[in-house]
């Protein structure tokens, strides 16, 4: 692996890889381990294989996804774990104004996002948080472009329905 490529294209996306791993594993420690393993694997990639990689970010995201799913499946992490961990970490990044605005609705939205079916959850994460193109999402998740659009549409629709329902009840 070329040190320059690693530092310019791979290392800067470590936070993105971490968020993606965190979204899948739901565990801060597991996600950190995943990032460590993925970066090591990328670094040890042979020169011949490196030459074949067109999009380092998409490739790293795919590795992260696979490793995270392996960890999740092997350890059978509970679905409730992600919410606690995500909330715990997020409070560090809130400024006072945002913290003040934070209410039950944001917590509900977080929970709803985390409880979406796996594909919808990952597509929504990659699009709305990581801002990947449809093509990049399809490549990362190894699904078709149509599946990306369908899953994104369903995920947003679910979230919107929940928001409107809550608005109707409270209003």
């Amino acid at each position: 692996m070329n040190w320059t490529i690693f530092h310019e294209q791979v290392f800067p996306i470590r936070h993105k890889l971490y968020r993606f791993a965190l979204r899948i594993t739901g565990s801060v420690h597991e996600a950190e381990d995943v990032v460590q393993e993925v970066l090591e694997k990328v670094w040890k990639t042979s020169a011949d294989h490196s030459a074949t990689v067109q999009n380092w970010e998409a490739w790293c995201m795919t590795l992260t996804r696979n490793r995270s799913l392996d960890k999740t499946r092997s350890q059978s992490l509970r679905r409730t774990a992600p919410l606690e961990n995500l909330s715990e970490r997020r409070t560090d990044t809130l400024n006072p104004a945002e913290a003040a605005e934070s209410n039950d609705l944001t917590e509900n939205i977080k929970r709803m996002m985390q409880e979406l079916p796996e594909k919808q959850r990952l597509v929504m994460h990659l699009r709305d948080i990581e801002e990947l193109t449809y093509d990049e999402i399809a490549e990362t998740l190894s699904i078709t472009l149509d599946q990306v659009k369908i899953n994104l549409h369903r995920a947003r629709k679910t979230i919107r329905t929940m928001i409107l329902e809550r608005e109707r009840i409270s209003g």
């Binding site: 470590r14 936070h15 995500l86 997020r90």
Partner: peptide, 10 residues
Amino acid sequence: VLRQEQAVEL
């Protein structure tokens, strides 16, 4: 929520 998620760092 999206903004908060984007701010999460390793």
